[in-house]
């Protein structure tokens, strides 16, 4: 599978950040969650994994993160050093479906966690953690406890925590699925801005066509039973979109959503084994 060249790939993009080769996952109950997925994630891409529930998109993301081993196939990190634990060193940030914060710790300590686990002292980490909180607009809430925050703010803490190690790759597993539409749109803009400003590489799991179309520079549409990539579409770069208030109501966006919807419909009703290249 090779994606058509996108319009604005950054230099050095030839070497993928992570490369999946024939990755399959069969759970202990026999379900084949993911069937022979091959994909290269290049630097600077915003890749969405879009598909119905049960298509293995979260499974794929977890395998990339090293949470669970593939039953078959390999995950390579051509551009990273591999740490002692067999994972790329400090290269992954992960945002879960829920905020997944420690309720007994204030916001600062929650965002500080990844650094603390690496043995960085609180004094040394203070500036980095505060900077991460600032990028998500929560610098004034460092002492608040998670329960004192709204759902959207908790999610932002989670994003700040994922960014605090300055990861090369940010993995997001349906992060805004439980939020209301307005908060979700705002956070979509935030993520796009961070992606653009920090030159992140993002893999974003979603089941929303609109979200995927708004955010992505590339969409991998997945089908279920067994989970597999059905089509891999390169789109125009979403850079700067978050500053264009009119984009969400533009014809271009509408056209994009229609296009992605059709691909998704194709994926959901495609016969097995009919994966597009």
């Amino acid at each position: 599978m090779s994606a058509p060249a996108a319009t604005s790939l950054p230099p050095g993009a030839a070497r993928p950040v992570v490369s999946l080769r024939g990755v399959s996952k069969r759970f202990s109950n026999g379900t084949l969650a993911l069937s022979s997925m091959s994909m290269d994630i290049r630097r600077g891409e915003f890749v969405s994994l879009l598909g119905p529930s049960g298509c293995g998109k979260s499974t794929a993301l977890r395998i990339v993160a090293g949470l669970g081993q593939p039953s078959e196939g390999t995950v390579d990190w051509p551009a990273s050093r591999i740490g002692r634990n067999g994972r790329p060193d400090a290269d992954i940030g992960f945002v879960f479906q829920e905020p997944t914060l420690m309720p007994w710790k204030p916001v600062f300590d929650n965002a500080f966690l990844p650094l603390r686990l690496k043995g960085v002292s609180k004094a040394q980490a203070r500036d980095t953690v505060m900077a991460a909180l600032e990028t998500v607009g929560l610098e004034d809430f460092a002492r608040a406890y998670p329960r004192e925050l709204s759902g959207g703010m908790r999610m932002r803490v989670s994003i700040a925590r994922a960014l605090v190690t300055e990861p090369k790759l940010l993995l997001m597993d349906e992060p805004f699925g439980a939020l209301d539409e307005i908060t979700r749109q705002k956070l979509n803009d935030d993520v796009l801005r961070l992606w653009h400003e920090k030159g992140l590489t993002v893999v974003f799991v979603t089941h929303s066509v609109f979200e995927a179309a708004y955010l992505s520079s590339r969409i991998a549409v997945m089908g279920a039973r067994p989970g597999r990539v059905v089509s891999d579409m390169a789109l125009a770069s979403p850079a700067g979109r978050e500053r264009d208030a009119g984009f969400r109501s533009s014809d271009a966006y509408g056209e994009l959503c229609r296009h992605v919807s059709q691909a998704l419909a194709g994926a959901m009703y495609a016969p097995r084994g009919a994966e597009a290249a």
Partner: peptide, 14 residues
């Protein structure tokens, strides 16, 4: 313990 928090700790090599 929240399984995702356990995953998070694993992810950061705790």
């Amino acid at each position: 313990v929240d399984h995702n928090l356990l995953n998070l700790y694993d992810l950061y090599g705790a």
